[in-house]
Design a protein around this nucleic acid. Structure first.
Lengths: 351, 351
DNA sequence: AACAGGACTGTGCACGTTCACAGTTTGGGT
DNA sequence: ACCCAAACTGTGAACGTGCACAGTCCTGTT
């Protein structure tokens, strides 16, 4: 390791110069604007009950002094943090393997920017991290939490409820549907639509690669597949994965070894669909001529595959916007609500 | 969209019951412990100059009251936020495509947990986001920033310096090496080592797929490649990518079309190496018999490829730990320093 | 016995903001 | 001419913590 030092510090004023310019406070603004603290405060919080004249001079004073409100002081008195947590309940090694987190994160940050709020990313995979995260959140750092990847009976949900932290879940929180708000895509309906689409293409032996049973996407997409197939459902056509590319490859290989006449496969994620495509290629099957492939998510992968992937589009931007809206409403005292949004079929080259 | 409402609010106490239990403050702890606020405060901040007796009763009182320190009040008086920013300077569409961010993020969070500090993730891709992020940071929310993906002449660096926000960059910040601290891997040396390795395998026509020229990893890995090859360097053997799998495929296809006798390729990222492998396969080349492949990063991809990927291991956990250490030192008044760490060759099936 | 100094403890103030409340002005209706 | 509400403004508390300072006690030395 090479350590290499550049320059020193620029501290210590020369003589009596009042070098350390204190950060301007609301008092300074009030003084230079010729009004009182109260008026400035009112201006900062919406401008209700402040005359046009006062408004102008306050604005000028803020510009002149370079004032910026001290969030800590504000939070101390209001009790609000003006921040929400983006809470990832994923074990360490899985962090960000799911390509769906990025658009969710981005959408939430964008939606929040309009409300003068910010996003704090918290990772709570291990029990220790869970505790840290809850301590942090209940410490007043955050007004509420967006729970991103919840598993069935996740102790995190109980901890959040126990500490009375407003929370909205992405996807139905299995087992606790009634106590926490949620925004979810219509998993069952989406899966049914994909299966119906594959059937309309003439496929008759449609396999499925599922996600983990303890997550809503894993459970309900399988349910939709089963519902739509009805009497045609056959357990031998189902293999399970963990959302990842690799697990898609493994599951597809397993399916091909088990069943000879598969003519379509519906994977519960685009990544698994990509893995399945790789396995199908290796087995010499043509896509979509021999086997049609359908995914779920409409992630960036879908268009960069060869062939491009038919998949169910999840409206991530709307989902995150809804999560923010719901959470802010709950924080403001609103009721716990749940919102379901439709997934829409996007037909591409793989079917 | 289906909206569906469950239950109402549980507000409004029944009669005169003092229902809204105020959060316990340091004063309550002091009262139940039978000591003064000062003693409790001293206990909380290291326990220096507090007697064993007092220590015990404070500890008991904290447990009994369920006290948790109010970070906002603390920050207001100390001026410190006890949080660092993880600042991603990536345009929206590229967010988290780079698999190297996750281990960095995780490592930083872990290193920080030991210091009772937390991480705030900020995304600053667009000019608007840059401004928001800087406003947030200079608002006192954060004590310093870890700049993750810096590009040459990124205006973000100037903004940070201008607002006197302590910053440490991951990778040498092109153009401003002297003014901001940084932790970087020895890009040039690492690239040379990989090229030397490929040569030691008997390869003579070693191609390279580079990253963007405006990022240190893009620039210096190419320089190492060029340095090591010396007189054997040939511009026709160089194609450029953008770190992504797809760009690796495209670059490799381009190289194969341009040069016939390539017997090795060094990709500046594992993802591009994976893309290159796909392209080589498609062209009927065997790996490593016909063409050896080397990557850079040693990301999770490397071991899940077929064949497994020879690559340069980046010590992400050490890098993030160093970034945290350097940043905390700067915040404490230390000098601006830069640290370089070695990348180590990991030989696997692709060479 | 007086004293010095270390170990510990308590108190008042400051941090920068919001909020409730009490004023002051204005304008319109009686 | 009077009054009342609406529109605006200023002031004195808090909010919960850390820190400087002034104490008090105890132990060992002169």
């Amino acid at each position: 390791m090479i350590v290499h030092i550049d320059g020193g510090d620029e501290r210590g004023g020369s003589g009596g110069a009042e070098a350390t310019r204190r950060r301007p406070t609301i008092k300074d603004v009030a003084a230079t604007a010729g009004v009182s603290r109260g008026t400035v405060s009112r201006y900062l919080n919406g401008g209700k009950w402040v005359s046009p004249d006062a408004r102008d001079s306050v604005e000028r004073a803020i510009r002149r002094t370079g004032y910026r409100t001290n969030q800590h002081a504000r939070s101390l008195v209001t009790g609000r943090a003006n921040a929400l947590a983006f809470l990832l309940a994923e074990p360490q090694d899985r962090l960000f393997v799911d390509p769906t987190y990025a658009p969710l994160l981005r959408g939430a940050a964008e939606a929040l920017a309009g409300h003068q709020m910010t996003l704090n990313l918290l990772v709570a995979g291990s029990p220790e991290e869970r505790l840290n995260a809850v301590t942090y959140m209940s410490g007043g750092h955050v007004d509420g939490a967006m729970l991103i990847s919840s598993h069935e009976n996740d102790p995190l949900v109980d901890l959040l409820l126990e500490h009375e932290i407003p929370v909205v879940s992405c996807g139905l929180p299995l087992g606790r549907t009634d106590r926490v708000a949620s925004v979810s895509v219509d998993e069952v309906g989406g899966a049914r639509e994909m299966v119906a689409h594959l059937r309309s293409r003439g496929c008759r032996r449609i396999a499925m690669i599922t996600g983990p049973e303890d997550q809503p996407g894993g459970r309900y997409r399988l349910q939709g597949y089963r519902d739509e197939l009805g009497a045609d459902f056959d357990q031998v056509l189902v293999a399970s994965g963990d959302w990842s590319y690799e697990s898609g490859t493994v599951a597809m290989t397993e399916l091909l070894g088990r069943v000879g006449d598969i003519d379509a496969v519906f994977a519960a994620s685009d990544a698994m669909a990509a893995g399945a495509i790789a396995a199908l290629r290796r087995a010499g099957r043509r896509i979509p001529e021999d086997v049609a492939v359908g995914g779920f998510d409409d992630s960036a992968l879908a268009t960069s595959l060869d062939p491009t992937l038919t998949t169910m589009h999840q409206p991530f931007d709307q989902i995150s916007a809804q999560m923010v809206a719901l959470l802010l409403d709950i924080i403001a005292g609103g009721a716990i609500r749940s919102v379901t949004m439709p997934a829409t079929l996007v037909v591409r080259g793989s079917s």
